[in-house]
């Protein structure tokens, strides 16, 4: 592994462990109560629907069939909460690649090493990707384990497919934060752009299903390519995932070009 990737991963280690533990705690809590939901399906369905009336229900992904393993896993894990957590984790790691060290001045020495600017960005990105991957793998293992303990009844392949989408979605936003940071050198701008796009993208994808005026916008929402294929129920939406991967690749290339062109730390 290149020296800079190893060094960056070492810097990320504590937050990667922190996020893995945090998301795992969330998953443990919610997946361990699934047996009680299943044993009382009508009540749970009713409670969920009354808690989230009208458009709120759309925002939560519809909440259909929440007492089934697929519906429950979709609603509490893959719909909103875990994607948000992993996306925040990825964006924070992404800003720490260029923007944060540029703001605190530690990037000065790094850019004067005999490492090409483009390679520097690429290796920092690789560390971000590996960090997010580590959190994704730990949490995937936990979902698989708790799923089988609570007898959730979703095929393992579908869970892996959904988790892969989760990883690709978070990686996209982490890469976006890295790219904006590489282009502007500003932590605040990169978090604002990443966070704003994530929020708008989620709202457009979920509400856009029933609001025709904005439904065309779903095509530019990264969440569309994560949620629309319903991987928990249907398995791998390969084409959608390739879109996420392709967009990420475009962002990385943009970051490399932008960072190679500009003054650092002015």
């Amino acid at each position: 592994m290149p020296t800079l990737v190893r060094k960056t991963l070492r810097d990320y280690r504590r937050s990667v462990i922190g996020w893995a533990v945090g998301i795992s705690a969330f998953l443990s809590l919610y997946l361990s109560i699934y047996p009680s939901i299943r044993s009382n399906p009508d009540f749970a369905q009713q409670a969920a629907l009354s808690k989230y009336p009208g458009p709120l229900r759309d925002l939560m992904g519809g909440l259909a069939d929440i007492a089934s393993g697929t519906g429950y896993l979709q609603a509490v894990v893959y719909q909103l909460f875990v994607p948000i957590l992993l996306t925040i984790c990825a964006m924070l790691l992404g800003t720490r690649a260029i923007a944060a060290p540029e703001e605190d001045g530690t990037l000065e020495l790094t850019v004067t090493l005999p490492i090409d600017r483009g390679r520097l960005v690429l290796e920092r990105w690789a560390a971000v990707a590996l960090g997010v991957l580590a959190v994704a793998i730990v949490t995937l293992a936990l979902v698989l384990a708790l799923g089988s303990v609570s007898d959730i009844g979703v095929p393992m392949g579908n869970i892996i497919a959904a988790h892969t989408g989760l990883f690709l979605l978070a990686l996209f936003f982490g890469t976006l934060a890295l790219t904006v940071g590489a282009a502007t050198g500003s932590k605040a701008v990169s978090l604002a752009v990443g966070g704003g796009y994530a929020l708008a993208g989620y709202v457009v994808e979920t509400l856009g299903k029933s609001v025709d005026a904005i439904s065309w916008l779903r095509w530019v929402s990264p969440f569309h390519y994560y949620l629309d294929g319903s991987p928990v129920a249907l398995g791998w939406p390969l084409g959608d995932y390739l879109v996420l991967l392709g967009a990420t690749a475009v962002l990385v290339t943009t970051a490399m070009l932008a960072f190679s062109r500009r003054d650092v730390g002015v």
């Binding site: 605190d104 530690t106 000065e108 020495l109």
Partner: peptide, 10 residues
């Protein structure tokens, strides 16, 4: 560097 910044737990 003139304003040497070193940070982190390393």
């Amino acid at each position: 560097p003139g304003e040497l910044a070193l940070a982190g737990r390393e």
